[in-house]
Nucleic acid binder design. Structure first.
Lengths: 344, 344
DNA sequence: GCACAAAATGATAGCGTTAACATTTAACTT
DNA sequence: AAGTTAAATGTTAACGCTATCATTTTGTGC
């Protein structure tokens, strides 16, 4: 297309009749430029279609303009949704995203984190659950003085900025909705034990039952791992009980999808004979039939908060780490679809 | 962890008693180093745990060590699977991946491609279908002299390296399998018209029917768009026909999942009253019930070929562009699951 | 109008690497 | 052994930007 060479800071400076530093300052918004020259320079920037050379910038400023995303989440739909959102957000603010899956074993974990830091020199990291609760990783990052934002963390909440939603409350409400629809025999498939949200959701579930004076037998609680497969075997156990539940609350959509599959296998119609609700509202929830009633988790918004926090550099100074405006609790939404219904 | 500063080329050179250039040459493998010094330097590299500074390298070499991935694919499961594979592969060879979704409108398309090239200065691009067949984009890239690999392209096959599989043959075989299972009334939901593979799969389907002397009414052909939603309405039409098909071959898994949903809505049991087969073998295929019989598309392998081609720099010289070893046709596999079965 | 501070701008020196060319060393020839 | 060529290594100057400090301009109070 345009055959002219990429214009450099120097070119812009020459055209605008100022020094390179002034142009640099305009670009980096760190003040100390008069309005007049600022507008002049900005005009030239546009005119020459200037695009900063990321590498030169990195080299000179010793910032990498890279963010890292660490995950080890069993729910593929959750990860990829978070990933895609983050990628776009990063691009919008001139950053790049380096994605890494951390290994199961702890030693390998630390290695790969160290490697990520070393090789790509990320300016900050986003930690998805359950990585965000691995104490050793947090320590490594703090020692290396690398800012990080945790997504839906479970413990050590005062350690770093984080973004989450009220998993407990959401679980409470979606359970209560099942109760209001007349369900009494409600089972729950717990999420991955390493993920803090699992426990919160479970607790919300229990408390909703309790506050409605509903007792369920212990067999109604199954441990899952956020995977389709684990949901499948959990549901199979639930559905072969003598006193079969009339509703299942799975701790994420993947397992809810599995619950529906398991019901189909046993010829139990959903939702007429069995209601199923999930959690997350990933794409999957509306790609299986029946579409899954679920809690919409604001994944995209969470990614946004995380990226913006890191880019803002608000907490480069460790002293700021305790500030409360670095902790974000976002809203959820209960979404009623075809997989759950009132009892007849 | 390690508190010592990152070691630089200079440090390694000093320790090894050679010049920086020699170290650089060892790193970049471009020959002209004696075995003896090579081993000596490599030992020091390891000893000092040297990690090259990507930015400095980029700046000096005028290479970016970035690859771009351009997509506009309606099938989320396909994209995210390709994406995750590519990300890992890139990291393994010291590259980073910049992902971009191209816009629907052509003008915006070109803009965003130009922007991608300008801003990130990618060394090469991977184009997923249907982006890989937008002539204007190809022209832009060629004019800018940026290497690119196309995935499952449709036309202009001699223009660039590509990787694909035999969509026609796969469609032929999976259709024939349905026929062998006794199906005669087989419907097809065509994929997105912009994606070349759609046509090939459709053709394979038609030819399988023809070679088995099976005629189907024109109503058995529905146009879809690779999305769940489009598959849903297509199947709804098919299932309300008087002469309902006994099997549906959807051009991808998302639409096959929709076909199953639509059948459920109408209380048509799958596979006993309706067999459904898909295409791609994305995660989705084994996350819905019944699990979808499908064609396994070697997505990961395709990503691998694409990344390796670009990294190898084999076709930096345009003269090489016609070489046949830059065109890869990978193997597929027919996967029989629970969504299709013999007719009784 | 003068001293003085504060704001705005400029000059210079890297950041860590590779390209391009210069030089040295080794390896053959005759 | 001198001459020639090739292989191995070294030197220097970018690459495009920002940090740091130096300098100029502007504004303020008396």
């Amino acid at each position: 297309m345009n055959k002219d060479k990429k214009s450099r800071l120097q070119d812009v400076a020459k055209h605008a009749g100022v020094s390179m530093m002034t142009v640099s300052r305009v670009l980096n918004q760190n003040g100390m430029v008069s309005e007049k020259t600022k507008t002049k320079v900005q005009a030239k920037l546009k005119e020459l279609n200037y695009q900063p050379n990321v590498s030169a910038r990195r080299l000179a400023s010793n910032k990498s303009f890279f963010l890292g995303l660490l995950y080890d989440n069993p729910s593929a739909s959750y990860v990829s949704q978070f990933l895609l959102s983050s990628l776009k957000l990063c691009r919008d603010c001139g950053y790049h995203l380096v994605v890494d899956e951390v290994d199961k074993s702890l030693t390998k974990n630390l290695e790969s984190v160290a490697e990520l830091i070393n090789i790509t020199q990320v300016d900050g990291l986003i930690l998805l659950p359950p990585v965000c609760d691995i104490a050793e990783i947090l320590e490594t990052l703090m020692a290396a003085n690398i800012p990080f934002v945790r997504v839906s963390p479970n413990a050590q909440l005062n350690v770093s900025p984080y973004v989450c939603m009220d998993d407990y409350q959401a679980a409470f409400e979606i359970t209560e909705q099942l109760i209001q629809q007349g369900h009494v025999n409600i089972a729950h498939i717990i999420g991955h034990p390493d993920v803090g949200a699992s426990r919160l959701r479970y607790q919300g579930f229990l408390d909703a039952l309790r506050s409605n004076k509903i007792n369920i037998p212990p067999e109604y609680i199954e441990q899952g791992f956020f995977t389709y497969k684990s949901g499948l075997s959990a549901t199979q156990k639930l559905l072969s009980l003598n006193n079969r539940p009339s509703a299942i609350f799975a701790s994420n959509d993947d397992m809810a999808a599995a619950a529906i599959s398991a019901a189909h296998m046993k010829n139990i119609p959903v939702p007429t004979a069995l209601s199923v609700v999930g959690f997350d509202d990933t794409l999957l929830a509306s790609t299986v039939w029946p579409h899954i009633s679920t809690v919409r988790q604001p994944i995209k918004e969470m990614a946004k908060v995380a990226v913006e926090l890191l880019v803002s550099g608000k907490f480069d100074d460790p002293a700021n780490l305790k500030r409360s405006d670095l902790r974000h609790v976002l809203d959820f939404e209960i979404i009623q679809r075809e997989s759950s219904t009132g009892i007849s």
